[in-house]
């Protein structure tokens, strides 16, 4: 009979944590790249582009992340694309992350007074110049805090990848739970590890928020 010592449990959980971190990073990078592109497209003020982005956001904010993962994992293969659990997890988390980030960033740009655009245009600045020197520096300052705050949601979202069989922290938690039959111990440890990953980010986001709000 296999015996799991506390050390074995912790060792395996910490090992799995690496995958949670890696998946979070990949999703965050993927999500923010897509969101950045969409935010840039939004600035063109083209009506069709706007409604397409609106639809994208509605679709991915309006359906459960779990469903998106199932669809990416089993659906895409049905349509003839091979995809691994890892690929499906990254893909669906990228959709999820970008749909929320594009909304958050839109809010940040919209908080800047419209007058700034007009004033800069009057000064003879081009669209890109306005963006580069006037809008972005301010928008980024406003955006950092909620973006860091949202990264916590991404980390927590990766837990759902366990359901499509990607072996990360939650999955290893359920596997260990089955091997040890000690759900209380295992899930407490899993929760503590997630907390240690997320809390510093939450805290940092709050500090940033105070800092930028204070200086305004």
């Amino acid at each position: 009979m296999i015996e799991f010592s506390n050390y074995d449990i912790l060792r395996n959980l910490l090992f799995a944590t690496q995958w949670t971190i890696l998946l979070s990073l990949a999703a965050f990078i993927g999500g923010s790249s897509v969101a950045l592109t969409l935010t840039a497209l939004r600035l063109t003020r083209n009506k069709v582009v706007h409604s397409l982005i609106r639809g994208y956001v509605e679709l991915f904010q309006g359906t459960p992340l779990l469903m998106q993962m199932f669809l990416c994992f089993f659906g895409l293969s049905m349509l003839g694309y091979e995809i691994s659990a890892w690929g499906a997890a990254i893909l669906s988390l990228t959709f999820f992350t970008s749909a929320f980030l594009v909304e958050i960033w839109r809010g940040c740009i919209d908080t800047l007074p419209k007058g700034q655009w007009e004033a800069s245009r009057c000064l003879g600045m081009s669209f890109l110049q306005i963006l580069r020197y006037i809008i972005l520096p301010q928008a980024i300052r406003v955006a950092v805090a909620p973006t860091v705050g949202f990264s916590v949601q991404v980390i927590k979202g990766t837990a759902l990848a366990s359901v499509i069989g990607f072996v990360e922290l939650t999955k290893v938690g359920t596997m260990l739970n089955n091997a040890t039959f000690e759900p209380f111990k295992v899930f407490t440890l899993v929760a503590i590890i997630y907390f240690l990953l997320c809390y510093p980010l939450s805290l940092y986001s709050k500090v940033l928020e105070k800092k930028f709000n204070g200086s305004r």
Partner: peptide
């Protein structure tokens, strides 16, 4: 699903 398949300490 032991004994058909279950994980060892190395997962």
């Amino acid at each position: 699903f032991p004994p058909f398949g279950s994980i060892g300490t190395d997962l």
